[in-house]
Design a protein around this nucleic acid. Structure first.
Length: 586
RNA sequence: GGCCCUAUCGUCUAACGGUUAGGACGAAAGCUUCUCAAGCUUUAAAUCAGAGUUCGAUUCUCUGUAGGGUCACCA
């Protein structure tokens, strides 16, 4: 049984539809009244069919889309479903497009559309159709912004009214709201249905009367569903489900703005734009029965649906110690904003690979087996797509993914990308990096070139300052006065004498072994153990161990107690800077 | 409240009805000619509870519990 037929196979539903259709006949409004509701010239469904022909694609190609609202930021969850949709489309030689869903004109800010476009661009999620970075649209199924499709929606809503499948409703929002509260108080299911659907069967006269008074109204869908009936729905991620039919006469159009609600816009757009697979947040799952009704009423074939669990975050615990999860929210959680990761300087690939890992946990194994393959080669599957009720966002894991990626980059690459980031978010560091680019590159090359992979201490470019900043004199100057205190673990005499011997014997051409032998000699001469083991065996015999002597130089040169290999650092700094820093101890 | 979804280490997750319940992140311990970051070697860590079906249940069924979603003139 096909997906579509299974939905409507239920006998009971069938009978209902027939009897309801008759009911619809009785409720078709006179054409003169319909013209009053829709006075403008509108496209008919037939005209639209001609304008937006079926896409010519291989049979198994998927057409997917992402439909964010332009509210000022790109939500991480939106990025997640965009990424998944894009991968499925391109994995099957299909089409992925961007549609701006701005039917809520109160909340939408047109100028923020480019935040969305830039985000998709930043994370390398290529769109085939829709708004581009230059601000133009591409693709033949546009316009791709819903507010520009007003006439299309109105044309179809008009056709629904003409078929008796939609009607005007003059209730105010306050009225519907208090009606809902009353229903809840009475223990009833809230909603505009049954006897609560005041305007469903209103007479022509009543409607005319309100229209004359210029009462604001909306158009509602006349649902023929029965809540007691179940329909079978096959979801790509959640499997086969049984959902109650929708019996609520949902609003599909606001007459005042002329714009539709999500539901109608979804049905209309995804039909005419040829979407085959709708992947969206699972908060839409319970609207599926309505959407299927809408598709049927409009005479469209519905797409396949896949409902993704939202990315969540931990939000405290209950008395029993269960973790309370909640969806990451734009308002409360900075990590919900996809562009935060740009600001912090995570490589876009890191975020993408973290999200791919949430989508298909087998990605991790694939990445291990194919460390150098572009992640677009990874084949996403619906079967593996998480069916959990929403993974918790894990910044620590993201850091690990990111460190791994950066550890495989060359110093040259890190320099280029890191500098670009610093120019935007850390100007002082950028200045230093540019002043002496070869110095900066050799810093970044410490313990990198020639190793199977580089140091794993940078997870994002915001770490760059603490990891390399001290190499640059102006930045070092700000921390150098702390050195004295840090050096208080040795006596002044030992410190001075270590410095003295060091300066006498240091040769920048020494190999690492030669250099370290000299450090050991200094240690021994001052009464420190040459090795940590030795010291551990007879701690009373020594003042300390060779590590303490190395620490003196480390602190003098870098102002820090933890740094990469000292020998490499000295080589990169050069003799002149080294001597200067050692002598600058107050 | 109605309806729907979900339940495996702290987290993300694997396991045709038969595994010693596996991996990754994180944690802990040890190793490493200097401190880190790594790397390597170990360790701790889970099937929500209770019934049922079955020779055998993490897996199937039911009940309970917990969490999530939805029930807008938001998407």
């Amino acid at each position: 049984m096909s997906y579509f037929s299974s939905i409507f196979a239920n006998n009971k539903t069938q009978t209902n539809n027939e009897s309801m259709s008759q009911e619809n006949q009785n409720h078709i409004l006179p054409q003169t009244l319909i013209e009053k509701l829709f006075p403008n010239k509108l496209p008919t469904p037939e005209e639209l069919n001609e304008k937006y022909p079926k896409r010519e694609l291989p049979p198994d190609a998927m057409v997917t889309r992402v439909g964010p609202s332009p509210t000022g930021l790109m939500h991480l969850g939106g990025l997640y479903s965009a990424l998944i949709s894009e991968r499925f489309a391109h994995q099957t030689n299909g089409v992925f497009f961007l549609r701006i869903e701005d039917t809520d004109i109160e909340r939408s800010r047109a100028e923020t559309t480019d935040v969305i476009v830039k985000s998709l661009n930043h994370f390398h999620i290529p769109t085939d159709e829709g708004m581009t970075i230059s601000g133009d649209e591409k693709g033949k199924y546009g316009p791709y912004t819903q507010s520009a499709r007003k006439d299309i929606y109105q044309g179809l809503v008009k056709s629904l009214v003409e078929k008796g499948k939609a009607y005007p409703c003059f209730c105010t929002s306050e009225e519907t709201k208090s009606m809902g509260e009353e229903q809840v108080k009475e223990g009833l299911r809230p909603g505009y249905y049954g006897k609560w659907a005041k305007w469903r069967d209103a007479s022509v006269e009543e409607i005319e009367k309100e229209l004359e008074k210029n009462t604001p109204y909306v158009i509602r869908f006349r649902s023929e569903g029965n809540f007691e009936n179940k329909i079978k729905v096959s979801d790509l991620l959640k499997g086969d489900l049984e959902l109650s039919e929708n019996d609520i006469d949902r609003k599909i159009l606001t007459a005042a703005t002329g714009l539709p609600t999500y539901h109608l816009a979804h049905a209309v757009d995804d039909h005419y734009m040829g979407t085959t697979h709708v992947l969206r947040g699972d908060e839409w799952l319970s609207s599926v029965p309505l959407h299927l009704q809408l598709f049927e009423a409009l005479g469209f074939t519905p797409p396949r649906y896949g409902h993704l669990a939202p990315i969540q975050k931990e939000d405290g615990m209950n008395e029993k110690g269960d973790i309370i999860k909640r969806k990451i929210s734009k308002r409360k959680d900075p990590e919900a904003n996809a562009m935060l990761y740009e600001e912090l300087g995570y490589p876009p690939r890191a975020v993408v690979e973290y999200l791919l890992n949430l989508a298909n946990s087998s990605f991790e194994d694939w990445r291990k087996a194919n460390p150098d393959t572009d992640n677009s080669e990874f084949q996403l599957t619906f079967e593996k797509l998480s069916r959990s009720n929403g993974p918790l966002f894990d910044m620590v894991k993201l850091n690990d993914v990111s460190k791994e990626i950066i550890s495989r980059m060359t110093a040259e690459e890190i320099y280029a990308v890191g500098l670009e980031w610093a120019k935007k978010y850390d100007e002082r560091l950028a200045l230093e990096m540019e002043k002496d680019s070869s110095y900066a590159k050799s810093i970044l090359n410490i313990e990198r070139e020639g190793e199977s992979r580089g140091r794993k201490d940078i997870s994002k470019w915001a770490d760059l300052n603490s990891e390399m900043g001290y190499f640059f004199d102006p930045i070092f100057d700000e921390i150098k006065d702390n050195r004295e205190e840090t050096l208080s673990f040795v006596t002044k005499e030992d410190c001075d004498s270590a410095i003295k011997s060091f300066l006498e014997t240091y040769n920048e051409n020494d190999t690492k072994d030669e250099w370290f032998a000299k450090v050991k000699t200094i240690a021994r001469d001052l009464g420190y153990a040459e090795g940590a083991k030795q010291f551990k065996l007879e701690p009373t015999k020594y003042k300390g161990q060779v590590g303490d002597i190395a620490k003196i130089f480390r602190v003098l040169l870098t102002g820090k107690t933890n740094t990469p290999d000292l020998h490499s650092i000295m080589k990169v700094m050069g003799r002149e800077r080294l001597v200067q820093r050692i002598n600058s101890l107050a």
